[in-house]
Design a protein around this nucleic acid. Structure first.
Lengths: 148, 148
DNA sequence: TATTAATCGGACATTGACATCCGATTAATA
DNA sequence: TATTAATCGGATGTCAATGTCCGATTAATA
């Protein structure tokens, strides 16, 4: 239902949020998120083109978030790599339906709207802050931060 | 987000529900739903394998619904051709997450659950009964049924 | 200025979704 | 029993998503 690319992008952004505002190399993100390095590179290029991350070439370079984790929603990430396509006009091209979707397509579009709504209301910061026994990308919940 | 095949299957089942309990030929369904005939044939075969429709070869044959429209949900149709895959275990294979999804994957799975929930609550009969200015697969709302 | 560490972007390979075609099969009926 | 109307299922084609590889480019620094 969601593409592999969306899953990869979310993992990557999640790691970047954890490390924020530090930048990370593609290599490092790939290792932590278990995404094929070469493909992740393409995904990150997409995120960069759409203003979610910025990239810096050369020594000391890497990828970092453009926004802070509390300003960045899951929806923005999803839409950057694989936009949620709402149904705006009748897929059969029926003239009389136009903007006014028939009940069938209305139900489907409502489902899409629900996903969009849910994703738009969740920031990366919220995902990372949520108290839980399992922490994104990590085998254990980070206890007290050791040091930096 | 939803596959072309899901869209086609919903259209086909919708027409079958309108004609229910009559059976229709693939050719006829294809014409009304504007789906490529040969491909629709494959989609219908899938629906038949999964017990949504039954098919009858030979003269006077065709495709018909197994259930009545008020017993058949959108979810059953969707799941028959392209099942909504919930996230049951950590996609990264992290041992400690197991059943217990991290907040990131929990949000994504919640979105899937929402779609599943919505689709499971809508029957084909409801879709066709809903008062509206646009009727599924048709340019005009069927006024008084002419005759049969 | 040479070296090193990093991303960029183009070419290519693989796979699955979407789509087409057609001979085989099935069933009604003249 | 021959004809006709219908689905079935296998072979094939096309294209986008996924994934790999590598030379070009960029920037820090010794």
């Amino acid at each position: 239902m969601f593409s592999q690319t969306v899953e990869y992008a979310l993992r990557a952004v999640c790691h970047l949020a954890i490390q924020s505002p530090k930048s990370c190399t593609t290599e490092e993100i790939a290792k932590v998120t278990k995404v094929p390095t070469a493909y992740l590179s393409k995904v990150l290029q997409g995120l960069a083109r759409n203003g979610i991350v910025k990239s810096q070439r050369g020594i000391g370079g890497g990828i970092s978030l453009v926004k802070t984790p509390d300003e960045l929603t899951i929806l923005e990430v999803v839409d950057a790599v694989d936009p949620i396509q709402r149904i705006t006009t009748c897929p059969l091209g029926l003239k009389s339906h136009g903007e006014n979707l028939c009940p069938l397509h209305k139900r489907v579009d409502d489902a899409l709207a629900g996903v969009q709504e849910a994703f738009s209301k969740t920031t990366l910061a919220e995902v990372l802050a949520e108290p839980t026994t399992s922490f994104p990308l990590s085998e254990s919940v980070p206890s007290q931060d050791v040091d930096e």
